[in-house]
Simulated assay, not measured.
Amino acid sequence: MKCNNCGAAVQQNYCAVCGQKASTSRLHINELFHDGWHAITHTDKGLLRLLKDLVIHPRSFYANYFNGQRKKYFSPILFFILTAGAVALLYGYVFAYQDKLFNTNNEFGKVVFHETKFKALLILPVQILLSWIAFRKYFNLAEVAVFWLFTLGLSYCLRIVAIPLYFPLIAYKDEIDLTLFYLSYLLILWQGLVLFGKNFWSIVGFFIILNISIILDSVVSLYILFGEDIFDNPMGVKTWWDLIKMSY
């Protein structure tokens, strides 16, 4: 028997070259649904397994992943892109529901959140570079990048899970937004301290990097809305100090 994927000879249930199942044939709809469900729930390589290990065993998860146990987990790049895209998509329904009930027409918020995935891609290289400079004694550039991809994806999952809360509590949308901001901040801080917190100065270093990320997020948001002159805006942000206050 030959593998339908790579053409190599197959003697067992799976191809020894590419790993595809030997019994694949014409695609059917039940197989498509099975693959989707398998990707989310499978104990060896599912989204739920990734989230469980990131939340319950983050230290051993990163150690195992960096030491080569990668087959059983989602790709960090895919995890980051899917979660960032889902937040940007689903949060649009929150704005639509708010507009329907209260006629708020929050165009500022809509634009910023629709650009979430692009903001993340702009800020991510800075986060990775600063973290690598600070912790290159312990981790290489690729390992630092994997940390940020998984950790930011985890923070986006928190926001995705919270989306249904907005609809019965839409009158308190600002309060929910603020709560999720603080929870996301604490989640990323915790993950960073688990991995990078070797001593007092490494803890301080990651804390500074995280807060630089928050300020940079505000800079990018203003740039998206008002162009190069970010201090020429109707929001009262005229100086860097104003921008820092707005960030928090």
Rank of each mutant, 00 (worst) to 15 (best):
C15T: 01
G36Y: 12
V237A: 15
F118Q: 09
R26H: 14
Y248M: 14
Y73Q: 02
Y91D: 15
Q98N: 07
L183G: 04
W132Q: 12
Y97G: 03
L158K: 08
F206G: 05
I133M: 14
Y91I: 13
Y166F: 13
L101F: 02
T179W: 01
Y97S: 06
Y62C: 00
R59Y: 10
W148S: 15
Y185P: 02
F231H: 15
S202K: 09
L122P: 00
V112H: 00
G109V: 05
L165A: 10
L225Y: 03
T116W: 04
Y97H: 09
S60C: 05
L89I: 11
I77K: 08
K21W: 04
F207A: 14
S75C: 00
S23D: 10
K173Y: 14
T239C: 13
V161M: 08
G7K: 01
R59P: 09
S202F: 11
L121M: 11
E175C: 11
N30Y: 14
S75N: 00
E143Q: 07
G85V: 07
D35Y: 06
W241C: 15
Y93H: 14
L149Q: 06
A16G: 11
F231V: 15
L195G: 04
H34M: 02
V10T: 08
C15Q: 03
Y166N: 02
D217L: 06
F61V: 00
L90H: 14
S202Q: 12
C3S: 04
I208D: 01
R70A: 03
L124Y: 09
L48M: 06
V112F: 00
I160Y: 01
E175H: 13
T24K: 13
I230V: 15
I163H: 12
L225E: 00
K100W: 10
L54H: 02
F102C: 01
N103L: 09
I214H: 13
N199F: 12
I133D: 11
L101T: 01
N67P: 03
V112W: 01
M1D: 10
V55M: 09
S184C: 09
I214L: 11
A96Q: 12
E228S: 15
D53W: 06
R70W: 01
A134T: 05
Y248N: 12
T151R: 03
L48F: 10
F196H: 02
D177C: 06
N211C: 10
N67M: 03
L165Q: 04
F33R: 05
S213R: 03
Y138S: 11
L89N: 11
H57V: 14
F66P: 02
F108A: 07
D217S: 04
G153Y: 05
G153M: 05
I244W: 05
F181W: 02
I81A: 09
F226A: 06
S25F: 13
F33H: 08
A134S: 08
K71I: 04
N30C: 14
V219A: 10
I224H: 07
K238G: 14
L32F: 13
I77Q: 09
L141E: 12
R59V: 09
L193H: 07
Q127S: 15
L50S: 03
L48S: 00
F79G: 01
Y182D: 02
F181K: 02
Y248E: 14
E31T: 04
Y172A: 07
S60N: 05
G19A: 08
Q20H: 11
W201D: 12
F206S: 07
F207T: 13
K173H: 10
R136K: 12
L216P: 07
G46D: 06
D44E: 05
N105W: 08
V220P: 00
